[in-house]
Amino acid sequence: MALRLGMCKALTVEVLTKLHTAGIVSAAEFVSRDLESLSKELHIPYKDLCSIQRVSLAENSAYPVSALALYQNALSSLAILSTGSDVLDQLLDGGLYTGEVTELAGDTVSGKTRICHWCAASTVKEGCNSVLYIDICKSFTVGILMDTMSEEAPDPQVIQSRLSRVKFLQVFDLFQLFSALEEVELCLSQQEQTPSDWKSLKLVVIENLPLLIYPNMTSSAPYNQGTLSRLGIKLKQLADSLSIAILVTNHLVGFYGQDKSDQRKAALGKVWSQVPHTRVILNRRSCGLSNFPSSSEVEAKLVKSGRQQTPCSATFCLSNGGPVCQTSKT
């Protein structure tokens, strides 16, 4: 939001240097000054200042949209992506909503990654939807995806075309994540010229978010909280403006123990906790890691939602093969 040449006719080199000497660099600084006194102080015509102010306000402010237009737009662009599990879909009132950030929080082996894979598989099933899968570890496994898909459609060509619409991106720190998101935004906002790479991107999965955030936690509070809240705003803005669903997985913090599972909450603190629209906490019933992990039940608890009564829970089975689970609603 810097004041720069060519922004406005009145903003000549001379005026700009005058403003710079007065310590006014950004548009925000400019508009917060009183124009009359500024005009007297710097000997710039008042009218010029007024027109600069008008231009900088128009250029930098968000444009108000009528709610009716938003409403009609929402009706046309909204999609609900299935998670691939009927129980979860039911819990989430249909599935993942575009325009929203959904969070899955759970301990290790609580089924986060698997659900992410289901979501990806069921999203690419429809039309030419594509999925972007971002992770810091290499938790993305084509095998699971293939297994899930082959249950539905055994035709290898179909599977191939579906797999081609899932993109995996490995990032190593928060800033790579930021740049990846920027890239997606840039590509999608000028959709005409885009190659089919990001075309009809419907779902962005970000796995193991805390692993990206924790290295920053050593720095000062304004820094780490600031970047975290920036990430939150970025994700929500992306979801909202491009109408894509964002699925984030998070860890749990708090007391650990069999009966104290209620006290465990999603990691990353208060700032992040405001970010997701919907949060589901996954809790594995049987804690055995080695004994038949495939057959154990997972309790999904909806703790935050803008649509439904919260706390609300359902249990489903993390069976090895496909998204279809034995449903047993609690």
């Binding site: 306000l57 968000a62 938003l70």
Partner: peptide
């Protein structure tokens, strides 16, 4: 519909943009 028409929505994405939007509003 009529009620929705009466509502305007602004979605600023940064402090500066919020400030600017408020000023133009």
């Amino acid at each position: 519909h009529e009620s929705l028409e009466r509502v305007q929505v602004v979605k600023p994405n940064s402090v500066q943009q919020l400030f600017m939007s408020l000023l133009s509003l």
